[in-house]
């Protein structure tokens, strides 16, 4: 699509420059406008927002995509004046941040009606502002499980996107987290029940235990994780290993991806310093391997039963943790 709908009218895509793709000029859950604690006077709103947009523009920012959906305080007339005065292109959206931000009129609507609402805002205008929406916002309601309404909104957004050529921005609305634990089942997808998980987190902070107790096991992925022993040599004269190929480690120190990025930096430095590729690769290994050997050892600590008390004091070894 060579045209992008901004609040001041369509512009060629080539003119957008650097784009901040998912921002909010102002945002409020529907109903928050009834609570004066959230009110800001027009004076305050301009005073807070204009310098931020101006700074964005001075640093090279070209376009600001406002992902504030219908019913969330989306204020297109405000965006129009901000865009005109700061020179930043502003793209407004149609759609909803999540089903839980759709007020009853839309919450009761079917896919067809929602589609027509979105298409209208993209092709005719948002309310009486005359501005066309440039993206469609969708998202999952709080709690992270798609509601029936979320699904209707997603379908309507997909249909409107297909009909108009405007893209969809989505919000997962979910928090994910990992529990890493010893497990005597060494297969790729161990069979673990909620009771097993509860035994694993027994003795941890009660909030963690509560989260585990409340888990919907249908939403839980259970996967075995593996590491490798340190590799003696990482390179030939012209080929080199980096990242997990060189030093795969367990993830719970958060050092796997970080180490790969540091490898890349170390190779660049080594090649610049050394007189030949062969010497450069040797220098890289000499620089990095002592560090990653240590990280691999740390990540493996706690994965034998006699070490577990160092890492998770008071926790039980694998057999006890799974109740076997």
């Amino acid at each position: 699509m060579s045209r992008v709908n901004t609040v001041l009218g369509p512009v060629p895509a080539e003119e957008l420059g650097f784009v901040a793709i998912h921002e909010h000029i102002g945002y409020g859950m529907p109903g928050s406008e009834l609570d004066t604690r959230w009110w800001k006077s027009p004076e305050q709103r301009y005073e807070e927002t204009v310098p931020k947009l101006r700074r964005f523009h001075q640093l090279g920012g070209g376009t600001f995509v406002d992902a504030t959906g219908i019913c969330n305080g989306r204020d297109v007339d405000h965006y129009k004046s901000l865009s005109a005065k700061t020179g930043v292109h502003i793209v407004a959206c149609t759609g909803f941040v999540g089903g839980d931000t759709a007020l009853p009129h839309f919450a009761r609507a079917d896919v067809d009606y929602l589609t027509r609402q979105f298409v209208h805002e993209i092709t005719v205008g948002i309310g009486d502002t005359g501005s066309l929406a440039g993206v469609i916002k969708v998202g999952v309601s709080r709690g992270g499980r798609m509601t029936d309404l979320d699904k209707r909104i997603y379908r309507a957004a997909a249909r409107a996107a297909l009909a108009t050529g405007v893209p969809i921005l989505r919000h997962r609305g979910q928090v994910s987290f990992d529990i890493t634990a010893l497990c005597p089942d060494g297969t790729w997808t161990p069979q673990v029940t909620k009771e097993d998980l509860l035994r694993t987190v027994e003795g941890f902070d009660e909030r963690l235990v509560d989260i585990t107790r409340g888990l919907d096991m249908d939403t839980v992925n259970i996967r075995a994780v593996y590491d490798i022993d340190p590799v003696g040599t990482w390179h030939s004269d012209s080929v080199v290993l980096v990242g997990d190929a060189a030093h795969s480690m367990l993830h719970h120190q958060g050092q796997g991806a970080n180490s790969a990025i540091e490898d890349a930096g170390a190779i660049a430095d080594a090649l610049r310093e050394a007189g030949s590729v062969k010497e450069g690769l040797a220098l890289y290994q000499a620089t990095r391997k002592p560090v990653t050997d240590k990280l691999q050892a740390i990540s493996r600590q706690g994965w034998t039963e006699d070490e577990i008390n160092d890492v998770f004091p008071g926790q039980k070894p694998a057999a006890a943790a799974t109740g076997e």
Partner: peptide, 20 residues
């Protein structure tokens, strides 16, 4: 005043408390 629950905005229904 307002109500019932179905007619409220999300501001009153998705509190940022744990548990909700």
């Amino acid at each position: 005043g307002q109500g019932p629950e179905e007619l409220l905005g999300g501001y009153f229904l998705t509190p940022q408390t744990n548990p909700p």
